[in-house]
């Protein structure tokens, strides 16, 4: 289901793709390029955040689709990002985990990692309003 999701123009333009599916939750990937580079040699924190945001939305869409609410509109309320390690010049992955999706609001965690999944480079927590399509 989630593998068929299309990511928004921002994701496509940055080179963010769905890598694979993990128990219904999509894992996203972005290759290192100058488009995502911050200070020389490192991944930009904003690009990291953007990747985690896309992963969070993809996980939430997958969950909503599974319960027959694929047409729900999503509106971000806020995001809190913790940067734990510098991202280096290599591929970066991110996955969202839906912590709680009620009828009106959802809380999604996301994490980003590079070569070692047990050492995430950043965490994000995103709150999203769920708006039924008219």
């Amino acid at each position: 289901m989630s593998a068929q999701q299309t990511l928004p123009p921002y994701a496509e333009a940055l080179g963010i793709v769905i890598d694979h599916d993990e128990a219904g939750e999509p894992v996203l990937r972005v290759e290192f390029s100058t488009r995502v580079q911050g200070r020389p040699g490192f991944l930009h924190g904003g690009a990291m955040s953007g990747l985690m945001e896309m992963a969070a939305f993809a996980a939430l869409r997958a969950e909503l689709a599974a319960r027959g609410e694929a047409s729900m509109q999503l509106k971000p309320v806020n995001i809190q990002v913790e940067f734990m390690r510098g991202g280096t010049e290599q591929v970066t992955y991110a996955k969202g985990t839906v912590t709680r999706a009620g009828r009106r609001v959802a809380l999604v965690n996301a994490e980003a990692w590079q070569d070692d999944r047990t050492k995430p480079i950043a965490l994000a927590q995103i709150k999203v309003l769920l708006i039924p399509a008219e």
Binding site: P8, Y10, A11, L14, H44, G45, G46, A47, S49, G50, L51, E53, M54, P76, I79, V81
Partner: peptide
């Protein structure tokens, strides 16, 4: 706009 660009 995506929120990624705003964060950056």
């Amino acid at each position: 706009l995506a929120s990624g660009p705003i964060i950056s």
